[in-house]
Computed example of a mutant assay.
Amino acid sequence: MKAKSSSAAADPETSFLEGQSGFYIRRLHQIAAALFMEHTADFGVTPIQFGVMMTAREHPEIDQRTLAQMVRFDTSTIGGVIDRLERRGLIRRNASPSDRRVRLLTLTEEGEKLLDQLIPHAIKARESVLEPLPAPQREAFLTMVKTLVDAHEAIGESGLSEAA
């Protein structure tokens, strides 16, 4: 049976994706990551590396598993991220005094300095993402996104890495 051709399928203004929230959420994530990389290019840090460093700063001596849960990445993926930060001398893994199998994470002095330099650029990246919205709507947008994430959090718990 021959499929019907539809001019609507070829028209991006009326395509099925036009009405799909997931398409726009994924696209906004791509844009946000690209803007972050643009604003922070001189530092060579990815958005997830930034998130790991900020979480390690805010929670000194955090274990790797808890950090992975906090940044919503699976433990094997976060291990690679931490490996790269450790090789750069930005984060240090220490054995837990109570359980030698557990690794506690600490930002190094170099990591602290880099983060201090990086934060203003990360803020500019966030502002660039939100800039098209009128100022009063920016906070409302973030509140709505957080509401959606919180409401659906359990769904994403089983697959914390991004699907390809």
Rank of each mutant, 00 (worst) to 15 (best):
R126G: 10
D42I: 05
H29C: 13
A135K: 11
A95S: 09
S6Y: 01
T77N: 15
T46I: 05
P60Y: 02
P136F: 01
M144Y: 08
D150S: 13
R103V: 01
G156C: 03
F50Y: 15
T147M: 12
D11H: 03
S5I: 03
G19S: 14
F23D: 00
G22A: 15
A95T: 10
R101Y: 10
T75P: 15
Q64T: 14
E157N: 13
R72F: 14
V52M: 04
R126A: 15
L85D: 05
D11T: 00
A140Y: 05
L115C: 07
L67D: 05
Q137G: 00
A122S: 09
D11W: 00
I155D: 11
M37Y: 02
I91V: 14
G22L: 14
A151S: 08
I48M: 11
A125M: 03
E38D: 15
A135R: 07
E58S: 07
I25R: 09
R88K: 12
E127S: 14
E131C: 02
D42F: 03
S21N: 06
S5K: 07
S6Q: 01
R87C: 01
F36D: 04
E61L: 04
S5Y: 02
E86K: 15
T147R: 10
T55A: 12
G22F: 13
S128I: 00
T147L: 11
E153D: 12
V71N: 02
S7V: 08
P120T: 04
Q69F: 11
I82P: 06
A125S: 09
R88S: 10
T143M: 10
F16M: 02
L114Y: 08
S98W: 08
F23H: 07
M53D: 08
G19V: 04
R72I: 14
V71R: 03
D116Y: 02
A95E: 12
A140D: 05
T106W: 03
M37K: 13
Q117A: 12
P120D: 08
V102H: 00
M54C: 07
T46Q: 09
M70C: 07
Q69Y: 10
